[in-house]
Amino acid sequence: MGLEEKLPNGIVLTTVEQVVGLARKSSMWPATFGLACCAIEMMSVGGPHYDLARFGMEKFGATPRQADLMIVAGRVSQKMAPVLRQIYDQMPEPKWVIAMGVCASSGGMFNNYAIIQGVDHIVPVDMYLPGCPPRPEMLLDAVLKLHDKVQNTKLGAHREQEITENEERMLRRSLPLVSKD
């Protein structure tokens, strides 16, 4: 309320949440979790044509202990599921997960005995990215959307309130049903 006007040049006021969000989103280190076809597209994103380095994310960490974003790129089999969870548990907080491709998001066309029907059965997912496989541009878009989400994440009590509000909103939301009988 008028405080900004009295400040000398070069001073910006913001909230702690925004500063933390900026720091978090600007140095996101993905853990390589390439599984199948999507992994190749993920590697393309790291290549010079699409250049993930523009968003400060070219360092695909070989170790989950130095990573805060897991891009699950491909179909997760029953045999891989425990491994995936172990990797996820090794990542330090805060951490985010992108389910890249329709197999990681929902099992996709492989609705059978071998494939986990969506990686959200094992780890919490922040961003679902459809496509089989998604184009590299789509992965970039998902990454940017996730950056936006991270930037605007609240902290502490605000975060708890946000979660409660989100949950209530989702429960109220009704999708158009195909049939109501």
């Binding site: 599984l35 199948a36 491909g74 179909r75 089999s77 045999k79 891989m80 491994v83 066309m109 492989f110 059978n112 005995y113 071998a114 494939i115």
Partner: peptide
């Protein structure tokens, strides 16, 4: 191996 077994042949 087998960490990416997808059951494609059965599908």
């Amino acid at each position: 191996i087998g960490y990416l077994h997808t059951g494609i042949e059965k599908n």
